[in-house]
Structure formats: structure tokens, C-alpha cells
Design a protein around this nucleic acid. Sequence first.
DNA 1: ATCGATAACGCAAACGATTGCATTGAAAAA
DNA 2: TTTTTCAATGCAATCGTTTGCGTTATCGAT
Lengths: 343, 343
Amino acid sequence: MKIGQATIKDIAIELNVSASTVSRALKDYPGISDETKRKVKEVAEKLNYRPNAIALSLRKSRSFTIGVIIPEVVHFFFSTVISGIEEVAYSRGYNVILTQTNEKLSREMSSIDTMLSNQIDGFLVSFSKETTDFDHFSRLLNQGFPIVFFDRVPEIPHAISVMVDDYKGAFDATDHLVSQGYRNIVHLSGPLNLKISRERIRGYESALIKNGLLVNPDYIVECPIGTDHESQKITTKLLKSLPVRPDAFFASNDMAAVGAMLACKAAGLKIPEDVGIVGFSNWQFCTMIDPSLSSVSQPGSKMGAKATDILLDMIEKKLDPESITGPVVLETELLIRKSSVRI
Amino acid sequence: MKIGQATIKDIAIELNVSASTVSRALKDYPGISDETKRKVKEVAEKLNYRPNAIALSLRKSRSFTIGVIIPEVVHFFFSTVISGIEEVAYSRGYNVILTQTNEKLSREMSSIDTMLSNQIDGFLVSFSKETTDFDHFSRLLNQGFPIVFFDRVPEIPHAISVMVDDYKGAFDATDHLVSQGYRNIVHLSGPLNLKISRERIRGYESALIKNGLLVNPDYIVECPIGTDHESQKITTKLLKSLPVRPDAFFASNDMAAVGAMLACKAAGLKIPEDVGIVGFSNWQFCTMIDPSLSSVSQPGSKMGAKATDILLDMIEKKLDPESITGPVVLETELLIRKSSVRI
DNA sequence: ATCGATAACGCAAACGATTGCATTGAAAAA
DNA sequence: TTTTTCAATGCAATCGTTTGCGTTATCGAT
């Protein structure tokens, strides 16, 4: 037994034919006799031949691999997106290589670099919180390199993106809180440089206005990190400092919602009686905590699948990027649980 | 501007030298004049030259890429392992390609296949729940192919593995429950074909015996899926069916622990007064739920880092696999929270 | 017997980088 | 001047596969 994998040449030698014949026989090209095809396939089977994907990549200048760049896998939402991506990619014969940036711009840029030198066929990107300048993406886009952004999408020309309707999700959540009789609703927002954060603020504001309530900027508070710990501290402070005690919290993120919940409990407030709470993303733990947390669910897996389908269509030229004018927007769903129901 | 990346040949043409000279100049080989080196590097910079990793892989029969095979990224524990893996891999100049098996053996095998044809340098594996036969790994091991197993490790010869001390973790958890005065402790175990599940059962039993308590097989119940939903149903049933009502649950998994908690609450039992609960893995939500969940924390990131270091040492022949006799075992830590403290 | 057609296959270049082994030219030694 | 020496560079093969363009051999037609 040889070391390493059998190659086309091994088959060729065994059968005393040329490598080209083997190559063609394996792919059922015309101009090769049935007899030869049979023998070649037989020997290929015997030697457990597997085509060398690297050699193929070099020859075709294609790797059949797509690169995925996300902030962090520990985020439930992103892990569901990954599943959607893998599902579609594998079914269409592509590999996935994944890196997390840990919210660092430097990691984002170096990942792009190494993936490019690995001849990646296209990118699926949700950029880091640090990313405010998009030159490194624009350059690639201008070269016609296939990129699809998801969830965190940039506002630059020619960028193709898949996102959820953050505006509507936030609107629904806030509207729901109002319908439950809550009046002084704080919005714990995400980092303001992310468009999704700004869209959610817009949705929150619209819902207030629609219901004839005032928008008070003091009731919109940024939670840049987004952990429960951070929001717990912020909420505790808010409960003391705000002139009128808030009676509801709509958080841009479930962890932040939990932090608010813990802070309220610690302050002796009952949920949902005294304070209503709604989160965003529908993490697994929403149903595990007490009271269960209402949340806006984002179709993560679907988003990953959709983004991948578009990317692969672009790679395979089945799709003209110019034909896509606006972002693809997926619907959210408000899941009402105990934390926000008191009527 | 040319389409695509600049190659060594482009630099060579621009400077009227041969490709070999460029290659050597870029790597500061001796025998190239400083003048030439300077010019080559200058042009390389100007053309934004990046070595083609695919060509390099083909030439060296090495891809500087390792393949990671895990059951699911949504599991908090695995997502922390991934971070540890990436950290070490990138710092040592390797890429990571990741696939999740979704607990399916067929996916596990096909992933291995495609990664092999991508000339992966080695594998990091935590196998699926369906995997009971390890031939597909044994074959590779016998060929000397570098593989390191983590967390879920097989009991086959020559397999190198990194795991936590599941026995001691379970022992500590159970011992703690006993010390809090709980006497009828149920163990909600993981799938019995996984060694980690069996080790945790052993630890549970040893702790009971050490404290002079009886091991009752009826109090060891398998939760094959491991979701909160499943364990909630199982626990509800147990609370009714067992002759002596359990006063504590030690679950092999935090989600199962939460399920037990919800079932107990639904049955009108107070936690920790009536029932004590301890989980395993220390998911993020442990501190978010009420009461907070005691849990055995596994050093996921450390495990990923350690496994990767060993794998890369094997790949780079810095380490003789024969020199590793037993598994590398990392310590767990029992984090005591409210769900199990009543004294 | 000669020619053309056709089936079946081989040659060699190409993808991009590396590397052992020449080759070149000029300065130093004879 | 001739030979030696060495620095600086080029040639060509290699990794595994694909593919355009030959090259054979065989057979029927003329």
C-alpha cells in the first residue's frame, strides 16, 4: 500500500494508459471505449481514488469553498445562521470555512486576507462592531468579487444583503408592550454604528408615536457590549435616575433583556406586573427563565440559507448582481411569553 | 489592472527576471543580490501580491488547514471550544475548516471524506451521538493521519484525546448535593453510548457510595436528546412514578437541568428548598435563570486550545504520537449557585 | 492499392509556487 | 593570459488534474 491517496497517475500506470484517458473515463467523456471506462472505474474503486481537490482548485482557479465571517459563534443567532449556511452549501457541493472576528476589525481584515489567498470563491459576512469603514469590502466588490452580507449589513453601493425586518420587529414588540398598558418604555439599544440598532430604534419610536406616546431620548439607552451583566448595571442605574420610573424594557438583544429583568427583580419589582420586558433574537433560554421572556425571533437558519443561495448563484453566474436592487428582507415574529403579558 | 490576484510570474515579467529569482527574493534566500531583493519586494507590494495558498498546498502536499468536526455549534460548550481552537490555529499559521454533523454519522463520514480530498493536515473530532463504530477513524489512525479527539473520545488504540475529568466533575456535583442534605438524588444522564455519560454516572455513583447512600438504578435516567423539553417531560413523569420523591437532580447537561427545574416548579416544588438541582457545562444562562443554576464548568476554550496544540505538534512532527500514553485530562470546577444551596 | 473517415487514445501545456541543478559573467588567483 | 572561484540568476521538473490538439490504427469506400 502506497502512502497517501491514489492519484490519476496511479490508475494510469496500473492500466497502462495515459492520465488523460483516465481523467476522461472517470467523467464519461465521449471518445473513450466502454471497455476502458469500465476498467478505469474498477481500478479507481479498488485504489479508493479520490480526486485531489487542491489540484482541481489550482486548475480551475476555483475552490468550491465559501468563507464565512461572523462576530462570534457563541451568539445563538449566529450559530443558527451557520446551520442554514452549511445546509445549503453542502447540498450544492461547496465547503464552508468559518472564522469569528471576536468583534475585532483587525481579525476581520486578516481573515479576509488569508481566505483570499486560499482562493475562496465568495464571502458571507456579518461584520464586527468595530467596523465603521468598509473600504476593505468595497475594494473586493469593485473587482466583482462575490460577497453577500447578512444581518449586519453595510450601507455601501453594490453591496448585496440579507437581513430581517428590524424596524418591524421592534415596532411589533413596542406596540405589544403599549397594548399591555405599559407607558414608560425604555429601549436598551445595541451599538449605534450598526444599522440594525438604528432600525430597531426607529421601530420603537414609530410604535410610540403611532400610539400617541412621546419619544423621550433619555429612554433610549445604548448597551454597546450587549451582555446581561452590562445591561443589569445600566438598568439598575436607570431605575434610580429617570424622573418617571420605567414600566417596561424593550431590549435589542435577549441577554440585555435578561440583565434588565434581573435588575428589576433585585429592585423588588415584579415582572410582568410592575415591569414588562421584551427581548430580541429568541435565544434558547427565553423559555427557560422565569418568567419566560417574550422576544422577537429572527429566522437565523433561513437567513443563512437565503444568503448562501444568493452567493452561490452569483458565483455560478446564475445571477446578475445588478438585478438585485434592494436588500432581501425576512420577516420576524413576535413571540409573546409571560414577561410582557399582564392583561 | 489585471483581473484576479498578481502572481509571481507577474512580478517576474515586470522586472525581467525569472520566477525562481522572485520566489527566492521574497523569502530572502542567499544568492540573490540585495538590489534584486529590494526591487522584487517593491513590485510585490505595488501589485499587492499574495502567495496562492492553493498552489503552495499542491506543491507541499500540505494545506496548513485543520478540519474540525463537532456535533453542533449551538451547544455553548462547543462554541467555546471553537474559540480555543481558532486562537491557537491562527497564531500558529493554520486555517480552520469547521463542520457540524448535527449528530448524524452519515454527515460525519462525508465531512471526513470531503476534508480529506481538500488535503486537510489533520482532524480535531468530537463525534456524533450516532457514532458507535470507529472504523472510519481507525483506518486513518493506522495510516498515521493526525487526529485528536476531544470531549467525546473513542476507546480505540492509538487515539489521542483531550477531555475533562467527567468522573470528578460528577462526583463533586453529587457530593455537594449530599452535603446540602439532599438524599434522593436523581441523575439525568446523557446518551449511554458516550463515554462521558458513563463517566458521569460513575462519578455520581461513587459520591453516593462514599456518603453511605444506596445507588438505585431507577434513579439514573437517560435523556438521549438532552433538551430542556425532553427532560421536563421525563422529570414530570419521575416525580409521579418514583416510590420516594426525588429531592435533587444532577443533570449531565444544563438544558436538561433547566427542564427538571421547570418540571419541579410546575409540580409546586420550591428550589432549592424542596429540590436541589445541579447541571453540567455552565452555559451562559446559568446565571440568568431564577434561581441561578449550579453547574460543573468545563474549560471549553482551554480544551480546544490544548487539543489544537497537540494536533499541530503531531502535524509538525514535534511530537511522537507514541509518546502520549493516556488521554489529556483537564479539571472541571463546580460552580455553586442558588439552585443547590439550602443550608 | 490508396484514400478518407472515424474511433480511441496520447502529448503537452496550463494552473502558481518551489527547488535541485545548471549556466553565466566577472573578479581573483595562477 | 589562462584558470579557478563564486556570486547571481535561469531552467525545468514537480505537485494532480484538465483539455485542446495531435497521433495512431482500423475499416469501408473507391
